[in-house]
């Protein structure tokens, strides 16, 4: 019986909404920020440092009565590429979404170039996203045109 219990039940089930599972535990608050949940008025539960086969420790977020557009969710792939998205209706998983790398992002990362105008004026940074030959995620600044590794921009 216990085998059938999903680890996500370590955090109480929701009736309708979105579950973001398999988040690296140290990225939990960044995912909350990226999804704009700091100002969400819906019921929000999350757990961190849960056991995970994939990471050792993982985090999970459950948002009741909230469904996201694909490009909102795809932003998560920048920091949690293995996150799993389940859409819940009436306590059942009705859809699993596969995350895709977004083509561009606005306002998540900071440009790593100290001479970039976005680091000196009140300007929202914008980047085009691509993967290089070694399949690392790279960001090209819309303004200064410098390319930085995603890791140094977050």
């Amino acid at each position: 019986m216990s085998k059938l219990i999903d680890t996500s039940l370590q955090v109480s089930a929701i009736k309708n909404g979105t579950v973001v599972d398999h988040i690296p535990t140290d990225k939990l608050f960044k995912v909350i920020e990226i999804l704009g949940l700091t100002s969400c008025d819906k019921q929000l539960t999350f757990g961190m440092n849960l056991d995970s086969k994939l990471y050792g420790k993982k985090a999970i977020i459950k948002i009741s009565d909230r469904f996201f557009k694909d490009d909102e969710l795809n932003k998560i792939s920048l920091i949690a590429p293995y996150a799993k998205i389940n859409i819940i209706r009436n306590y059942e998983v009705v859809e699993k979404k596969v995350l895709m790398l977004p083509e561009s992002i606005t306002g998540i990362a900071k440009c790593a170039n100290p001479m970039c105008v976005t680091n000196h004026q009140r300007i929202t940074p914008k980047f085009t996203v691509f993967t290089d030959k070694d399949s690392s995620v790279m960001l090209k600044c819309h303004y200064c045109e410098k390319v930085t590794n995603l890791k140094s921009a977050l």
Partner: peptide
């Protein structure tokens, strides 16, 4: 002309 990179695009 401006010393900051990206200033002209902005």
């Amino acid at each position: 002309r401006h010393p900051l990179e990206g200033s002209a695009r902005y």
